[in-house]
Amino acid sequence: MYSREKINNGLIILLISIVCYFIAFEYIIPANKIFPKLSLVFESIFELFKHYNLFSGIAITSSVIYISLSVILLIVVFLKEFNSYFLKLNSFIKVPFFLIILVFAFWFGNVIWAEFVFAIIVIVAHISYKGKVENVKINNLIEFVELNKLSTKLPTKIKSVFTTRSIIEEMRKTHFYLWTFILIYEFINNTGGIGTILERVYNNYDLAGLFAISLILYVLIYIGDKCYILIKNKLNT
């Protein structure tokens, strides 16, 4: 009941905001450099597919993000013995991602497999950072099991289940970060993904195009997140 009420309220606020935006920028202040007209944004969506090759952009970026996430997820679920190593990698990956992107630009240029490698580095680094915090919790759990003499085999079982579950939980957040870093990577390295289209839109001073891409990105990330929740629930580790 509560969540349905919350959704209804959210929808009402969203609809009112869209109507206000439409009236303000379509009729009151149509020409400005801050927010584009809504009709122009929708027009830009079609333009993006027609002139900027957005289909191929979406295919490249989504493949990089979701294939690399799937690879790590498969390792986490089916090769559980690696999980504790993921959490220990934190001390090795401390270089800012922006520098890694620049170094990759020098080394590999716009090669697509390098983008995959970069995506894997981002995911593992993010998981391992979270792992540092989780290690404290794992120790508390183990102490709880040992003090209560619950079972001699339990600490190992709990450690494995806890690590796997917490990595899977964390990868949902990683998904959002990965989108950001991959877009920056493509923006700089010109790999042909959405980031590259963003670079062209930016260079053409196409504000409506920028808003149109933002809208498409929102939908893609939203669908990706929902799919991740579905897969996570199905895995039931």
């Binding site: 919790k137 709880f144 003090l147 939980e169």
Partner: peptide
Amino acid sequence: IFYIPSEIVLIDGFTVAENIKLYV
């Protein structure tokens, strides 16, 4: 004797039953 610590020792994302089954 059963000891309840001040820290939370239940697991993220696990249901009540799943958490209990880890220990019993």
